[in-house]
Design a protein around this nucleic acid. Structure first.
Length: 877
DNA sequence: CCCGTCACG
DNA sequence: ACGTACGTGACGGGG
């Protein structure tokens, strides 16, 4: 019979390795999970490789050990641990407990000592032992039957270095026990163990190879070379002796242990499954063979397609106070999931006599009767319903977004987990990757999916409403976010007209010039390569043509525009590359890209997303119509293809410096408020006040510097950032900032207060109460924390501006309709609204835009807009 | 699927 | 010493 196998893991050491080896990772609750995740990957890799019979994980306790008694400065593994790692230790233990893995700890000993003791005892009993640690000190334990395994987390995955006794000898030229001697000489900075000055690994190894141990070396101290090692040895031998004691792993710890306690049982328990799911370890879940747990709620799920039963269900609904209605389908309605009470959840499929029209008529009628209706995605449901605005509907996706805008998605299973504490199967768990239409035929699974949606919408509605009230965001939700859904829906369905032929022509012209440039670049480089590949381009520029490389990215040379621009003066090929880059961007993203989205009505219907940004802005996708070129002349021409219908014109209105005005209001700085009330040109007046020169004498350079400072303030000022933006030294930048703060004395206090508030609460607020959590503010990592500070300064400003324009767009949309006008809002670009205005209505629409935008909020400074009209978007400048 | 780049506010 | 301006989305390249 083969000997039994024992795997011993150095808990903190592996967590530590994983923490630094794996990029930051958090679950949906914002708990850091990277170290736990990395630990589990290493654990599973080892268990997959070795058919182990026994397993234990040893942890250090924070209690002092015999080493601290010997040497008070001794550090040990637990000190100096960053918070993001420290908080993962209890999570790790919870996971191990859930998997039934034995955790060994003992006050007064470190994990090393426990591991050493267990390893040696087990070896004596005839077991094969693997000790897993990131710490090379453990190599002193290696024997013929004790293997030391050191995992390395690399980009490509985890690789493990294995050391039996012979491997240690091969690699270090000394036997395992002598590792201690090595450490006695070299010390260990991470544990605060001092080494001999001037003695590194090379010298230490030479000495130990020659003399075997430090005592023998001391006996022959006069022979030691080089000289500085000899002197160090003479002077600090006592210290080396102590270091040796500190480095020696105690293999006789006083611990009772029965090997049978360490026997590996069923690792993939239900507890572990639930925990993994909570931690968002999706790809580790595949290790569990057990099915997704069945909840008793599923027993209440019912598929209905019989007309009489459907009638009955809607009949029952009439008298209900609360309900959830989830309409399922993409372009066509597949069915409706409903819940009125805890007792039953229905999915009514569009099938047989239950037609789409019939079902929708019933749903519309039901919507009239019920006090509170929970839905998951109202904008999507509006596709099937009439767009009459109802104030009894609660969109729970939007509610969940307000409560935590940092999530990537707000799916029903995520809402259930976060607000109902329930782990339920996700859409993908139930339907796989199939489309809704394809999955519709699997009745049982599809019904579960639909009913879970309705179940969550019903159950989560009161919870989310309560939370919105608790966080004082209910008014934001009801007066801004909910009405905005209708406005966005209107914009999406109305779309914006795009001239296809003009777009194609534009693309063809770009192609001519791109081909020309390509030829020239190949000639100048004396080779053909893919100019669009930063990798290939980097090799050509910085290796073949030997240009000085200023910056590097993670993967190679940086070829970003700011780097290339510095080279363009000296190398003609570089300016061609820059032009090529610009043109191919225009062609691929805009000329060709937009053409793909033109629908049969000759219009583009972008999607406006309401639950994406951390700050409260909306975003635009498929295509993004919020980043159509404007800054460069050539790109700006694209805007000519965006046109109004016959007998319409475009009216474009944008807020002037809305974010700076918000800053003036929020900070209450009288000087800045006064500046706004007095002058049109805020950047010029800023320059005049900051540099103490008359308004008329401000040079264009001074003005643009002031403008950059204004931007910097809004972005969460830092001297480094400003110096980058202005291409000046950090010192000069710091000087500008200081002058700015002197000029507007309340700004600094205001920004500092935001950071303080963010640190105290973990979030900051816009004027309208919109919250943004900033977990980075409590990070121990300088970079992360600095980022959090800038975010704390920027988000309330950006968020308030976002709130204001949302209010304006809702009112513009509603007012156009209320007055029965034909003109329609078509686009929003953060501080700009584009309206397709019917010619006869022009003066009225101008009035509406101007009124609603300027009066969207009452601030201590006025909100000003600029309005232009044109026969295309290009002309509205 | 991630990275680098670049378009916008 | 660390090594960045804030917020987005789309594209091509490359593993």
């Amino acid at each position: 019979m083969d000997p039994k196998k024992l795997v011993l893991i150095d808990g903190h050491s592996i967590l530590n390795r994983a923490f630094y080896g794996i990029p930051e990772l958090t679950n949906s609750e914002g708990i850091h999970t990277n170290a736990v995740y990395g630990f589990l990957n290493i654990l599973f890799k080892i268990l997959d490789e070795e058919k182990a019979d026994y397993l234990a994980v040893a942890f250090d306790l924070s209690a002092p050990t015999f080493r601290h008694e010997m040497f008070p400065e001794y550090k040990g593994t637990r000190k100096g641990m960053p918070d993001e790692l420290r908080e993962q230790v209890p999570v790790m233990k919870e996971v191990l407990n859930a998997m039934g893995v034995k955790i060994v700890e003992k006050a007064g000993y470190e994990a090393d000592d426990i591991l050493g003791t267990l390893a040696q005892k087990s070896e004596k009993e005839g077991l094969e032992v693997s000790v897993v640690s990131g710490d090379r000190d453990l190599l002193q334990l290696a024997t013929e039957h004790i293997k030391i395994r050191i995992p390395k987390t690399k980009r490509t995955g985890t690789e493990i270095e294995d050391y039996y006794e012979k491997d240690v000898v091969e690699k270090y030229q000394i036997n395992p026990k002598q590792i201690i001697e090595l450490k006695a000489l070299m010390g260990d900075s991470s544990d605060n163990i001092p080494g001999l000055p001037g003695v590194g690994e090379k010298t230490a190894t030479k000495i130990i190879v020659e003399y075997g141990n430090i005592e023998n070396a001391f006996d022959h101290v006069e022979l030691i070379k080089p000289n500085r090692a000899k002197e160090a040895f003479k002077e600090h031998f006592a210290q080396a002796e102590m270091s040796k004691k500190l480095a020696t792993i105690c293999t006789e710890c006083d611990i009772d242990f029965q090997i049978e306690e360490l026997k590996i049982g069923l690792l993939y328990t239900e507890d572990a499954y639930l925990l993994f799911k909570r931690l968002d370890f999706k790809n580790l879940l595949t290790r569990f063979n057990c099915d997704v747990p069945v909840y008793s709620v599923e027993e209440n799920f019912k598929y209905v397609s019989d007309l009489n039963q459907v009638e009955e269900i809607f009949e029952k609904g009439q008298n209900s106070k609360n309900a959830s209605i989830v309409l399922i389908g993409g372009n066509h309605l597949l069915g409706a999931a409903l819940e009125y009470s805890d007792e039953e959840t229905f999915f009514i499929g569009v099938e047989g006599f239950v037609t789409e029209e019939y079902l929708l008529e019933k749903v519309e009628k039901l919507l009239e009767q019920i006090d509170q209706v929970g839905v998951l995605d109202l904008k999507h449901e509006l596709k099937f319903l009439n767009d009459k605005e109802r104030n009894n509907i609660y969109d729970l996706g939007i509610a969940a977004y307000l409560l935590n805008p940092l999530r990537n998605s707000y799916l029903y299973d995520e809402i259930a987990k976060d607000y109902l504490g329930m782990l339920i199967p996700s859409k993908e768990d139930l339907l796989g990757k199939a489309s809704l239409e394809e999955a519709f035929n699997q009745k049982e699974e599809f019904t579960k999916f639909a009913c879970y949606c309705a179940y969550v919408a019903f159950k989560a509605m009161p919870v989310l409403i309560d939370k919105l009230k608790e966080t004082e965001m209910f008014s934001l939700y009801q007066t801004i976010e909910m009405p905005l859904i209708y406005t966005l829906y209107h914009m999406e369905t109305y779309g914006v007209k795009v001239e296809k032929e003009a777009l194609e022509q534009y693309g063809q012209q770009l192609k001519i010039r791109i081909d020309e440039l390509e030829k020239i670049i190949y000639e100048q480089a004396e080779e053909q390569f893919n100019i669009n590949s930063p990798k290939q381009l980097g090799v050509v520029l910085f290796e073949k043509l030997k240009m000085p490389h200023a910056k590097k990215t993670k993967t190679g040379y940086s070829t970003a525009a700011d780097v290339l621009e510095k080279l363009a003066a000296d190398y003609p090929i570089v300016s061609n590359i820059l032009e090529y880059r610009q043109l191919s961007k225009l062609k691929s993203t805009y000329a060709d890209g937009l053409a793909n989205y033109i629908q049969d009505d000759l219009r583009i219907h972008s999607t406006f997303n309401q639950t994406i940004t951390a700050t409260g802005r909306i975003s635009s996708t498929e295509p993004n119509l919020q980043n159509i070129p404007i800054r460069m002349d050539l790109g700006r021409l694209i805007r000519k293809v965006f046109i109004p219908e016959k007998d319409y014109v475009f009216l474009d209105a944008d807020y002037s410096q809305i974010e700076l005005r918000v800053l003036a209001h929020m900070s209450g700085d009288e000087m800045l408020i006064k500046a706004y009330n007095e002058a049109q040109d805020i950047h010029r007046i800023t320059a005049s006040q900051v540099f103490h020169i008359p308004f008329e004498e401000v040079t264009s350079l001074q003005r643009s510097n002031a403008k950059a400072v204004n931007f910097g303030i809004v972005y969460g000022i830092s001297s480094f950032g400003l110096s980058q933006g202005l291409s000046i030294s950090r010192k000069e930048a710091a000087d500008y900032i200081q002058k700015y703060f002197e000029t507007y004395p309340k700004i600094k206090g205001f920004l500092d207060k935001l950071v303080e508030e963010g640190k105290a609460n973990g979030y900051i607020c816009s004027v309208f109460g919109r919250r943004r959590p900033i977990p980075e503010l409590s990070s121990s990592n300088f970079m992360q924390r600095s980022f959090g500070e800038r975010v704390a300064m920027n988000s309330p400003i950006q968020g308030t501006a976002a709130d204001i324009i949302k209010i304006a767009m809702i009112r513009v949309d509603q007012e156009l309709r209320r007055q029965g006008l034909k003109s329609r809002l078509v686009l929003q670009v953060h501080d700009e609204l584009l309206v397709e205005a019917y010619k006869d209505e022009l003066s009225m629409v101008k009035e509406i835009l101007s009124e609603e935008m300027k009066n969207a909020a009452k601030l201590d400074v006025t909100l000003e807009i600029e309005m232009n009209q044109g026969q295309n978007w290009y002309e509205t400048k």
